[in-house]
């Protein structure tokens, strides 16, 4: 099924999404990778207010490449990075900030129970850095620029950003896990067939 949603995302909106569905997103996404995650968690544990509002927000695992002309930023390339690196820091983020979706690539093993009723994981096609940049209409803001271009938190305004595939839905279904289960059975069958010849 195909969906079009606008941020901030409500709980009702994400409950409509099922693993394997296709989604196009309009509104705002916040980039965050390793260092930004550490900073957000650090602020939360010290009860400091974040410089941006994550209620109903979408986090994008992305270290973009931008060019500055005059006072405005132009996004050159903004493909997803491997989400696996953020897996350990994600529970605290999901539980304490009110984010409703995470965009990345490759999935996040074992997070499906945590996402239940709260959040979804959306897959953006790996390597499609210039296509992603096309979907970003404006750089609305940037936070923690001292972390460097790739690690800062960029507020991107996006229009029909996608295709995003619902990789993990809010019902505990993980598409990556399902694919690997089948692959594992296929692998066993092939190996057994060649063992018996």
């Amino acid at each position: 099924m195909e969906h079009r949603l606008t941020t901030p995302l409500t709980k009702e909106a994400i409950l409509k999404l099922k693993a394997g569905d296709i989604l196009y997103l309009t509104g705002k996404v916040f980039t965050a990778r390793d260092e930004a995650h550490k900073h957000i968690l650090d602020a939360l544990s010290h009860h400091r207010k974040l410089p941006f509002n994550l209620t109903g927000a979408v986090i994008y695992h992305c270290g973009p490449l931008l060019k500055k002309t005059g006072n405005s930023w132009q996004v050159v390339s903004a493909g997803p990075t491997t989400s696996e690196r953020m897996t350990q820091m994600t529970p605290a983020l999901v539980k304490n900030t009110g984010i409703r979706a995470i965009i990345g690539k490759g999935g996040m093993k074992g997070t499906a129970p945590l996402f239940r009723g709260r959040c979804v994981y959306l897959a953006y096609t790996g390597g499609c850095a210039v296509l992603a940049a096309e979907g970003i209409s404006r750089v609305a803001n940037v936070h923690w620029q001292n972390l460097g271009m790739a690690e800062a938190v960029w507020e991107f305004e996006v229009k029909d950003f996608g295709p995003l595939i619902v990789g993990i839905d809010s019902y505990g279904v993980d598409l990556y896990e399902k694919v690997l289960e089948k692959a594992s059975e296929a692998l066993k069958a092939i190996v057994m067939a060649s063992d018996s010849t």
């Binding site: 394997g20 296709i22 270290g63 973009p64 490449l65 050159v76 390339s77 903004a78 493909g79 096609t125 390597g127 499609c128 850095a129 210039v130 296509l131 940049a133 096309e134 295709p163 595939i165 598409l175």
Partner: peptide, 28 residues
């Protein structure tokens, strides 16, 4: 598979944009 098909068309579009704009295909 429709999901796979959507990924492949994103890849093909990305290849075209990179060639037109002379930008790197992938940020890595």
């Amino acid at each position: 598979n429709t999901v796979a098909k959507s990924q492949l068309s994103a890849i093909l579009k990305n290849i075209e944009i990179a060639r037109e704009k002379k930008y790197p295909l992938c940020q890595d």
